[in-house]
């Protein structure tokens, strides 16, 4: 009780000293949000529904869905992102599992080795990887394969980290309890460890799937200029063709796809308590 009181005193003393209320302190963040999030979003919406003559129109959306180029680009982007995400899960899960269980990873040294590349500029990393692929001869096989390799290389740490965190936080006695009740180590994995690590996988998916849809630096670098993803298409509308209206419409469609994918993985997370049947 007494401690609480002094804390409260400190708090009031603090606000008296600076002369700001909590509400006043929120103002800079409100301004920031307004300038860099809300206004740009509103602008995108406004542009998306505006025709070249400046009046309201749905033409931009009609154009998007009636053009085979844009639709096929969208489908390729989704498929590439999907493939990247799946490969990332396949690589990251066993690795995170080993890191979380292993004695080798005392103090997180081994984990650091996998995270440190994230600190290096990613264009630089992409170039290095491309050179490596050219050197080994893999680069000539298939442009799509190249892009997937490039994206997996760049995004796999984002998959490792959340899965690793979930696995290290998991109560070890749950695994013991499962073994104790007669489950084999494999059954224990499928019935206890895997379902309980689903939230980690879900946030890994959000962190990999969405950026890979738009990250055209990698598709440009690894695709020999032959693979266009939706992010590249939007960029071209703004830079090359100066068609801001069509570009904004595409950005809105992408936003909608992302919100849907977030909702799907998000419902995974809230269902983590019942995801046992997986």
């Amino acid at each position: 009780m007494r401690k609480e009181k002094t804390l409260n005193n400190e708090r009031t003393a603090g606000s008296v000293r600076f002369g700001f209320s909590r509400r006043q302190l929120c103002i800079p963040y409100g301004v920031f949000l307004l300038c860099f999030v809300i206004i740009p979003l509103v602008l995108i919406v406004v542009y998306a529904f505006r025709g070249n003559d400046g009046g309201f129109t749905l033409d931009n959306f009609v154009k998007f869905f009636s053009s085979t180029t844009t639709i096929s680009t969208l489908i390729i982007s989704v498929l590439l992102a999907l493939a990247t995400t799946i490969v990332c899960v396949i690589i990251a899960y066993p690795l995170a599992y080993i890191l979380a269980r292993s004695n080798l990873n005392r103090g997180g040294t081994l984990l650091m080795l996998f995270i440190v590349p994230m600190w290096i500029n990613f264009v630089l990393r992409a170039m290095a990887m491309k050179d490596l692929l050219t050197l080994t001869g893999i680069f000539g096989i298939n442009n799509y394969l190249n892009v997937i390799i490039g994206m997996v290389y760049d995004y796999v740490p984002f998959m490792i980290l959340p899965i690793y965190t979930v696995l290290t936080k998991m109560d070890k006695s749950l695994v013991e309890a499962s073994l104790d009740l007669g489950a084999s180590p494999l059954k224990t994995f499928t019935k206890v460890t895997l379902p309980l690590s689903m939230p980690g996988i879900a946030s890994g998916i959000t962190m990999v799937f969405m950026p890979t849809m738009t990250c055209y630096v990698i598709s440009d670098t690894f695709g020999n200029g032959l693979i266009t993803i939706i992010g590249k298409l939007i960029d071209e509308q703004f830079t090359a063709f100066s068609n801001w209206n069509f570009g904004s419409a595409m950005a809105m469609i992408l936003l909608a796809i992302m919100l849907i994918s977030m909702w799907v993985t998000g419902s995974f997370k809230s269902e983590d308590t019942r995801g046992a049947n997986l």
Binding site: S173, L174, A177, S178, D180, V192, L196, A276
Partner: peptide, 13 residues
């Protein structure tokens, strides 16, 4: 043999 654990170790899912 079955065990009752100190912190119960019930499966939350």
């Amino acid at each position: 043999i079955n065990t009752v654990f100190q912190r119960y170790a019930l499966f939350p899912h």
